[in-house]
Nucleic acid binder design. Structure first.
Lengths: 338, 338
DNA sequence: CGGAAAATCTAGATCGATCTAGTAGACTGG
DNA sequence: CCAGTCTACTAGATCGATCTAGATTTTCCG
């Protein structure tokens, strides 16, 4: 509470008997100071409890080395990425500042606050701003988890096509061939995943077995689609029911699991279910959903690299990071195959 | 990409034919400018696309009017509070900067980065730093969701005792009298909630019906406790089984629901369950757990008020915000009472 | 109308760092 | 021994705002 004013660079300089400029050199670790004085300055700095003032540093330096990150508070996975971005950023010599977007705070506002803070590049996690909007911004922008075409912004996303293939390979490997897909309806990314599914089925010569049901991003969507699936399967012949379902995302898969359970189907004995996101939800012990996960650390590192490259004058890169398969308790070999 | 340097206050001053100082006055909305010039300056500022530079502003002004917020990335509810703090802060004329703590980024580090940025007060959401540590910090600190005694820091938390009472009143109102409690084991806050439960039962003259099972913060803890509860109930007489359970938190309640379901009990027909937190989990459609929720907007507003008051020279306040009851589908009148 | 009070505006110092330009001294080589 | 190069260091300008102190104009009122 006794607000003793924190020591400045001038204080350290006076105490160590050198100039401010030299202290600056030492603190930044720049060249131009002898080993002896370097040590002396660092010692007195530590003794005085000196900490460089970020505000002043940002103001003066040509390169702020500050990375602005915009994330959405309603997406738990974003929070996870934020922490990884801190790590990746700091490892690359960048400071990281956050700005949250959400239902009551627009992405626009979040971006502006970072601009005013002097960020020299932005990482937007799953931005809703269209590409043209991103192109307007006066600094390099990296879009995470949402691919962007062209030179408007760099992008780093998970390879969704590879993700679907992982899920399908897993199911095929278990012996499934009647594999259905519950898509994400009009949600972002749904079309791409659906396309990957259909492409895989075609390549495997299983076009006849392919069937897509309209789901959505939430549990309710999944429940609806699952009921439809059961109804459709019942009509022609019960044997025609799919033995496995690849679902748009984990939340949707949760709704699917619920309906299957209430219909008396046992997962995975009667039917296998694969989600997408490997969210905390999926990892709850009594759910333990087989799911496709994004490689968070690699995504974060790639985003920082892309931002640094863009600052170095490169053109917008578009990276795809391979996802991984987390095998849980909702997939097994089909019933008749032991 | 064509990095046109953004206009500064001097540019606006030149364009409007006034001094820098006057522009500053107008932008800050301070007294000392006539209505006419005020308008003229604002117009030219808008035309030039001028935006004040936060770095410079922070550096110079005696009061940074910057509120630092530390949240934990692993807690989804924190994210929700963050957005509310933005709102509450900005409404009170404070800027808000975030710093994330988490498994790989210490609270200490998060706090320091905010100090370096020039925050003039900190709001720590559920800090793990002990009170003595908070007292060391050279600025006012508000601990949210974790009560702190003494003058080390202000605190704003949800009134847990009132929360338990809400749950109990609800169940009593439905006609329950055999109400059990599954606690949080050694988790933070568990002891207080258990005490509230026992106190309520005593006050209601139901000490004979009170029974506490050792749970914990996670689903697995809940499952274990639920099995114990069923075992214990089976032995003396089935009729002695509690007709309702108040559970430490939502995750724990999820495990409880799972075990009850698998044991053939129908919730809420055979037994009612109340959670605590009103988390997103509880609000999933097919779970729809009756739960005690924290009043987020009020918590955020109170935290900002407390910080402002502390900055104004007041002593550390300790506020309790009343929670609310969210009635879901897991509570109903006990079986024999229609 | 005169002079005090209030309102409006400006010059210049200042916050705490970085950065440029330049000085002092040590070292090298012919 | 002197020019040339390197290393170690420093003075002072600078970033873009705020703030203080003072200048100028307007208003008010007896």
């Amino acid at each position: 509470m006794t607000a003793s004013p924190r020591p400045t660079m001038a204080d350290v300089a006076a105490a160590a008997g050198v100039s401010k400029a030299l202290v600056s050199i030492v603190i930044r670790g720049a060249v131009g100071a002898s080993l002896a004085t370097r040590e002396r300055v660092l010692t007195t700095a530590r003794e005085l409890g000196y900490r460089p003032d970020t505000r002043a540093r940002l103001l003066r330096s040509t390169r702020s080395r500050l990375l602005g990150v915009v994330f959405n508070v309603t997406e738990p996975y974003h929070a996870e990425l934020v922490e990884l971005l801190y790590e990746a950023g700091e490892a690359a010599g960048y400071g990281v500042t956050l700005s949250a977007a959400g239902p009551r705070r627009s992405e626009q506002l979040a971006v502006e606050s970072l601009l005013d803070l002097g960020a020299e590049a932005l990482v937007l996690i799953a931005p809703s701003t269209p590409a043209e909007g991103l192109a307007q911004l006066p600094l390099p922008v990296i879009s995470m988890l949402r691919p962007v075409r062209g030179d408007a912004a760099g992008s780093v996303s998970s390879d969704e096509d590879a993700g679907i293939r992982l899920a399908m390979d897993h199911l095929r490997g278990l012996g499934h061939s009647r594999i259905a897909h519950i898509d994400g309806g009009t949600a972002v990314g749904s079309a791409a995943r659906r396309r990957s599914y259909l492409g895989y089925m075609a390549d495997a010569g299983l076009t006849g077995n392919a069937s897509v049901f309209t789901g959505g991003p939430s549990e309710a969507d999944g429940s609806r689609a699952a009921r439809e699936l059961l109804d459709a399967a019942g009509r022609p012949a019960a044997a025609a029911r799919p033995s496995a379902v690849v679902v748009f995302n984990d939340r949707c898969a949760l709704g699917v699991l619920d309906v299957f359970g209430k219909a008396g189907l046992c997962v995975p004995r009667d039917i296998s279910v694969v989600g997408y996101d490997n969210s905390r939800l999926a990892r709850l012990e009594h759910i333990n959903l087989t799911s496709i996960g994004q490689n968070g650390p690699e995504l974060a590192a790639a985003a920082v690299r892309a931002a640094a490259a863009r600052l170095g004058g490169g053109t917008a890169e578009h990276l795809l990071v391979p996802p991984f398969l987390e095998i849980g308790g909702t997939t097994a070999a089909p019933a008749g195959s032991s």
